[in-house]
Every structure is written in C-alpha cells, then in structure tokens.
Design a protein around this nucleic acid. Sequence first.
DNA 1: CTAAAGCGTCACATCCATGTGAGGGTCAAG
DNA 2: CTTGACCCTCACATGGATGTGACGCTTTAG
Lengths: 144, 144
Amino acid sequence: MRIGDLAHETGVSRRLLRYYEEQGLLRPVRLPNGYREYHQSDVATVRHIRDLLAAGLPTAVIARLLDCVHDDEGGRMVPVACPGMITHLRRERQRITETIERLQTSQRHLDTMLAAVRNPTQPPARTTAERRRRAPIVGQNRAL
Amino acid sequence: MRIGDLAHETGVSRRLLRYYEEQGLLRPVRLPNGYREYHQSDVATVRHIRDLLAAGLPTAVIARLLDCVHDDEGGRMVPVACPGMITHLRRERQRITETIERLQTSQRHLDTMLAAVRNPTQPPARTTAERRRRAPIVGQNRAL
DNA sequence: CTAAAGCGTCACATCCATGTGAGGGTCAAG
DNA sequence: CTTGACCCTCACATGGATGTGACGCTTTAG
C-alpha cells in the first residue's frame, strides 16, 4: 500500500507518516519510482506508534523499541538484535506505569470536582483573607 | 509564600509558575511591591496542574477546570460559578480514561515484546518478500 | 493526449511547554 | 551605603509533533 492508503487507514496525515519514517519509526520500501510502499502490518505499527506517542514517549525512544522488536503480521512480536534491550523495555514500561498513575490521580481529582459540583458543601468558616485570595486580578482578561 | 518558595516546594521553575499564571491557572495576590504572594494551597494546586498536564490536557482546559472549582486547604473542592461545567468535567474525564486505555494497550505491547525477547519464537514460514520488507534502506543512516 | 490525483522533497510556519538572559526594582544583612 | 538574594517584565530561543504550501514528477482515468 502507498502512503495515501496508509494515511487513510490510520487517520494519520501523510506528513506525519513521512515524519515517522524520518525518525526511524517506519521503514517503507521504495518503489522504483520513488514511491513509498508500506506493508499491511504497518497499519498496526502506526497505531502502536500513536499509542506510544500518546503515552508521552518521544519518537527517539519509540524508534529504539520498534527497532529491536517489530510487529509481525499476526500481531506477534519478533525480536531482532537488541543488546541490553530488556532493561530498556522495562524502564519504559515503568515510565508508562507512572504516567498511568498520574492520570488516575487526575481522575480522582476530577471525580472530587464532580462530586463537589453536584452537591456543593458549604465549606465551614473560612477567613475573609482566604475567601479573597482568588479575587479577580485587575488587568487580566484573557480571551478564552 | 513568594514565588521562590513555591518553586522550591513544588519543583516547578519560577518561569513556569509565571507562565501558569499568565495562562490563568494560578492567581497569586500581588503585594504592594509587585511581588506575587502565593497561598499555601497553591502548592497542591501546582501539583494538580502538573498531573493534568502530564495527562495531556492543555493549559486552556486546565484553566477552565480550575476556574470553576478550586482546591480548598483541606484538599476539598469548592465549586464556583460554572454553568455547563459538569458536562465539561465529564468530557475531560472521558478523555483521560481513553488516554489511560491507550497507555495500557502500550503496556501490553511492551509486555509482549518482553516476552518475545525473553523466549524468541521462530516465526513460522514467512515469505522472502515479507522478510525483506524491513531491510536496511540505502542512503539512510541517521545519527542516534 | 491531457487533466486530475497521488507522490516526492524542501522549507518555512505554528503551537505549546519550557529555558535563558538582559535590564532593573526591593529588601535584608553586614 | 553596599552587596547579595529575590523579584519583576520583556523578549527571544528551543524542541517536539504537526500543518501548509511550493514545485515537479508519475500514474491513472477519460
């Protein structure tokens, strides 16, 4: 498949697909006319890339991951030459775990907010000073 | 507390604290000499902001969230004037949920990789074409 | 054959969270 | 009074993921 097809199937712009290649995340074969020819499995790879990007991993890291292990057609993973990779993989996994935890913390925050909005608890006895501290600032009116 | 203290207590640079204010995420009081005076609870707020940023929410969205509900000293949430906010909160919560799911997908990917690296499975009968498709590309040697 | 659709490269633009530094006040300690 | 530690504003820089557009070649449909 060519870049347009892949873009269509993944919802990722051609520009980005070229960018990913530049970053070493994709290695499409080149047809004699210079066109990029993608393999069917690249659809999965791109989705994978997007997941990892959404995970906050920079392309450089993703490149290293994909470089050592690539998607097979059956969604299987095939290990390639990758010394010290296990350590690396584990480290990244840990990073993601931490990110997930931060997100869950945020969700708890949001839930607390939702609960508060739903049944407003009159907070007991705050001082006037406290009440004033979020007062509007003069000269600040940013467009939303 | 002043900006230096807050920076120290949160590990966030002064620059960023000013930036957050500019984005409407913090509203420190101004002392007569122009210095920003932060409330103790801003420490928690900043942590909260960082979590949400790490969650991938842009400052504009975070501003709207904080704008309608702010941290009390006891970690409680106090709802302020916020029409249609519940919907908004829910939408963001949903977004975060999706992000978490993508991260978990990525983790499964990593786990699969780890398993593969650990006990390499000889993938059965791939065609030569398939095997060739990740062959090195001429003219590509990017510095890592 | 011709036009449209796709592709390629190059390069500049944008957004957002951050960094960095210049130039200049404020304030407390010596 | 002076020095050093903070603070302020302004403004330009950067890095990473993306967008956009120019210009030209290739392939495909009519």
